[in-house]
């Protein structure tokens, strides 16, 4: 038996919808698990990434921890994949890019309706927000992009299978969508 490929996944400034779509691969995950094993991933709950063949990132980059995780993935993964709208163009979190970070924080935590003891959170454990939300390719080199909000389970399955078999990746028209 050939050695299983190591796959790591992470959700940065995303909604975990893309990871739900990975789970949606459902019973086909069983044959897939004969080809790959998960390293750092919300499914394994492994916190620290090791050397991996494939890294899959959902979500864009909105805070200092996101930058750290993304750079760690890039250093440790041979192939890095941006999965879903937010990883590719910032998506919904990037809607805040039209406003200053100060305005966003004040609107949410100081001037919002019904707030008591209003204050902007500043616990040292909370990662510092970046001024703007960035798509992954603005921070590190990305090898593959898989659009969709989220990409369907079928799209992820086809993508991974073709990638693992070394074929050129060609998704059917219906599987390639931005929405």
């Amino acid at each position: 038996m050939t050695k299983k490929l190591k796959v790591a996944t992470a959700s940065l400034a995303g909604c975990f919808g893309c990871h739900m779509s990975i789970l949606d691969i459902d019973e086909k995950l069983i044959p897939l698990s004969e080809l790959i094993e998960f390293d750092r991933c919300p499914i394994t709950d492994v916190k620290k990434i090791g050397k991996c063949d494939i890294g899959i990132i959902e979500g864009g980059v909105c805070n200092a921890e996101n930058v750290h995780v993304l750079k760690e993935f890039r250093e440790n993964c041979t192939i890095l994949i941006a999965m879903g709208a937010c990883a590719i163009n910032g998506g919904v979190p990037a809607l805040r890019n039209h406003y200053s970070l100060k305005d966003c924080l004040e609107e949410s935590y100081l001037n919002g309706i019904g707030l008591e003891n209003a204050q902007i959170p500043n616990d040292p454990e909370i990662p510092l927000l970046l001024n703007k939300v960035h798509p992954l390719h603005e921070v590190v080199t990305i090898d593959y992009f898989l659009p969709g909000c989220p990409p369907s389970a079928d799209a992820i399955w086809t993508f991974l299978n073709e990638l693992l078999s070394g074929e050129a990746i060609k998704l059917p028209y219906q599987a390639l969508h931005f929405d």
Partner: peptide, 28 residues
């Protein structure tokens, strides 16, 4: 600012359709 997942025109949009036709996967 073309946020397809939040746009009412998504699926009926010619810009998006041309992007699909030209196999645009990323904003580059």
């Amino acid at each position: 600012n073309h946020v397809c997942p939040g746009c009412e025109k998504s699926g009926n949009c010619q810009l998006q359709a041309v992007a699909y036709y030209t196999e645009m996967l990323s904003p580059r």
